[in-house]
Amino acid sequence: MRLLHTSDWHLGRSFHGVGMLDAQRDFVEQLLEVVRERSVDVVLIAGDVYDRALPGLDVVKLLDDALVRITDAGAKVVLTSGNHDSAIRLGFASRLLERGGVHLRTRVEDLDSPILFPLDGSEDTTARPDAPMLAVYGIPYLEPRLVAERLGTETANHFDVTEAAVQLIREDISRRRETGPVHSVVLAHTFASGGISSDSERDLSIGGLGAVPLDLFEGFGYTALGHLHGRQELAEHVRYSGSPLAYSFSEARHLKGAWLVDVGVGGVENVEEILWKAPRELAILRGKLTELLESEEYRWAESAYCQVTLTDAVRPAQAMEQLRTRFPDTLVLGFDPEDAAGRAKVSYSSRLADAEDDLGVCCGFLDHVRARPGDETELSALREALEAVRLEGAEL
């Protein structure tokens, strides 16, 4: 049996204000191509299928279309909810969807209720109770405050509720192995210790207390993790698939993809990486404005989404407008002047103390907040404004 481990689709998300629905449609097309060409039996989605608890209508339609086309291609779907999803809304009509091959695991009550797949080539899971089975379990994102009591834990933290969920699964596996061989796959939307995070993920808790130890997942045939957006291997059979698209510039160096997992009668036989084609390159540029606009070194970035940090000692006027003449998709602009340390030594209060008149105060403010003194046009405008205020005060 062949599984395709994905997660964190975040349908409906934007990238620094740029809509990504078309890019997400393109990802679905790539996924369908893999399902057909590699004969995938089950597509796993380990949470955060949506980016918001209340997704837009076009976003819901995209998921609906994706699920229909995946099942039409001959694959089943197992989907858990993540911290961005509304578990209740995503889990709506789960029993009905199951008849069409889409299995949702969004409720605590279903933690020890696996989806069973025969590994002997048969379709009927009840025909031979002693036949080797693949049991796929789903652990949705567990908000400790909401589920601790239902899971019987004394404290509401990520470790305790995840440990309780895993224990329920282990007990179910043990019962099933009394009648025949069972191999297990667990989907879990959580932050496992050792995982490398990126800027586009929502913190599960403060201070890293949301991380759960990796050994919680020992003994399972394969653990398909979701939440972290970088595809990574934490142990041989414990992996994050990562998000299919980059959702922050911190992911510029990620190779986006998924894991293709082959399971036979003896358990997991092979895990292979699958790579998705990125719709746009991400460019992180740093330097002086003139250098960025003129150097051939940056030609490759002209069609990329760009994050630019300018290091000019004096902040250039209309910097974004100038950058976009060469890099039209500059989305983030920052300033880090080379002499920033020297300028920081001059406090704003010192600038005010040195000002000789009201115009000096205004000019000092301009220089302080944008690291560039006013030009003649700006000085003229400030003079006129100050004169108008003076005349108005005189009339009163």
Rank of each mutant, 00 (worst) to 15 (best):
L11E: 02
G17C: 10
L31A: 09
E37G: 04
V40I: 15
V42N: 03
L44Y: 12
G47L: 08
D48I: 06
R52M: 04
L54Y: 12
P55F: 06
D58T: 12
D65Q: 13
L67C: 13
A75E: 01
K76V: 00
H84A: 02
D85N: 08
A87V: 04
F92T: 09
L96Y: 12
L96A: 07
G100K: 12
G101V: 01
G101S: 06
V102D: 09
R107C: 01
E123V: 14
T125E: 15
T126F: 11
A127C: 03
P132M: 13
L134K: 12
G138A: 04
P140C: 04
L142I: 07
E143C: 02
E143Q: 14
A156W: 04
V161I: 08
A165W: 06
I169E: 05
D172T: 05
I173K: 02
R177W: 11
T179E: 14
G180P: 04
P181R: 13
P181Q: 09
H183W: 10
V185E: 06
V185F: 09
F191Q: 10
A192P: 05
I196R: 15
D199H: 08
L209Y: 10
L214A: 07
F217V: 01
E218W: 03
G221S: 05
Y222I: 07
L225R: 07
H229F: 12
R239M: 08
S243D: 01
A246D: 05
Y247R: 02
E251M: 04
H254W: 06
V261Q: 03
D262C: 04
G266Q: 11
G267F: 11
I274Q: 00
L275P: 01
W276V: 03
R280W: 10
E281Y: 00
L282K: 00
L285N: 11
T290R: 15
E296K: 09
W300F: 12
V308F: 07
L310V: 07
V314P: 02
L323N: 00
R324Q: 15
T330V: 14
V332F: 07
S347M: 11
A355T: 06
D357Y: 06
F365H: 08
H368S: 08
R372V: 00
D375T: 01
E378V: 07
S380Q: 14
S380W: 07
R383I: 10
R383D: 09
E387Y: 09
E392T: 12
